[in-house]
Design a protein around this nucleic acid. Sequence first.
DNA 1: AAAAATAATGTATATTTTTGCGTCATTAAT
DNA 2: ATTAATGACGCAAAAATATACATTATTTTT
Lengths: 157, 157
Amino acid sequence: MNKEKRLQLIKEIISGEDISSQTELLQKLEEKRIKCTQATLSRNLRQLRVSRVPGNSGKLKYILRSGEHAEHIDQEITDIVHAVVDTVWAQNMMLVKTLPGYAAAVASHIDRSSRIEIAGTIAGDDTILLVPNDNYSRKTISKVLKQVLPGVQQNVK
Amino acid sequence: MNKEKRLQLIKEIISGEDISSQTELLQKLEEKRIKCTQATLSRNLRQLRVSRVPGNSGKLKYILRSGEHAEHIDQEITDIVHAVVDTVWAQNMMLVKTLPGYAAAVASHIDRSSRIEIAGTIAGDDTILLVPNDNYSRKTISKVLKQVLPGVQQNVK
DNA sequence: AAAAATAATGTATATTTTTGCGTCATTAAT
DNA sequence: ATTAATGACGCAAAAATATACATTATTTTT
C-alpha cells in the first residue's frame, strides 16, 4: 500500500495531461506500476480536491483546484520544510511558525497540497494560521501536515 | 422554451446555495417554474463551465468556474464588494475569499464597520479570517456581513 | 414564405462516479 | 500483548452524469 505515492502521482499526471475519466487515470497509473481500483481513485480525488471541469475544448478534464497554476510539489519540499520552526495549537487552529519571511512560501506550499482537511491558511511574515475544516480532529490535521510537510515536528497536544 | 432565463437562474441558484446534483438543481428550477430535463441541465452546465467540486465539508457542490473571476481580475474593481469571491465557514469562523491581493482592502472595510459582533480580522493575500466574538451565531454574523458587504452571497451552512 | 441550416431538447441508454459494506492493515490505548 | 479505533481498500450496486439519436423549434438564406 502506498497511498502517498499514488496521491503524488495523481497530481503529477492530471497536471501534466488531460485526463477525462477515472478509468483513464487508472491506466496511466498502471503504466507507472501503481495499481488500485477506480473506487479508490474516486476517494483519492476527493481528498485532493481534484475536480472535473469542462475544459476549453468543451471536453471534461480533471484539474487540481487550488494548484491550477502551480507546479507540483517536488524536491523543494525538503527545503521549505526547514523553514518551519514550530507548530502550536490554539482555538482549534494550528499556528505554524517559520523563519522570518518564510511564512508565505510555506503557506503556499500547504495550500497547493489541496488537502480537503484544510479550509485555508493565512500567512504573515513568520507565522501561518492554518484553519482546519469542521469535523477534522487535531490528530487528523497533524497527520495531514505530516504528509504535506514531512519531517516537521509537531506538538499535537 | 427559454434557455437564457434558465442559464441565468442556474447561475443564481448555484452561487447562492450548495447544490450537489443535477436532480437537485432541477427541483430548484421547478420551484421557479422553469422546467427541463436532467440531460438539458448537463448540457447547460457544461456551457456555463460549471463544475462539481469537493467542498470544504467533503460534499460535492457545483460552482461557477474561475473564468468569471479571471475576467474580473483584469478589470478595475470599483466596489470593494466585487472582490469577494466566496465565503466559507470553518471552526466557527468565517473565511472570506477575495481576488488575489484584495484581502487587505476588504478586511479593512470590515474592520471599519466596527461591528461588535466581530472580534477581528486577519488578512492574507486573498483570504480573510473573520473571527466572531463569542456567543454570536453563524447566522448573526452572516447578517452582519450582509450589511457590511451588501450583495455578497453567502453559504450560511 | 419556403427551404435549408443550425440550435435546443427529450428519451433512452451508456458511461462514469460515488458509496455501503466487509475485510485487512496500521496505529493507538489499555 | 491484547484489544480497540482508525484508515485504506476492493467489490458490487446505486447514483449521477453524459451522450447518441430522433424530434421540434429557431434562425438564416434564397
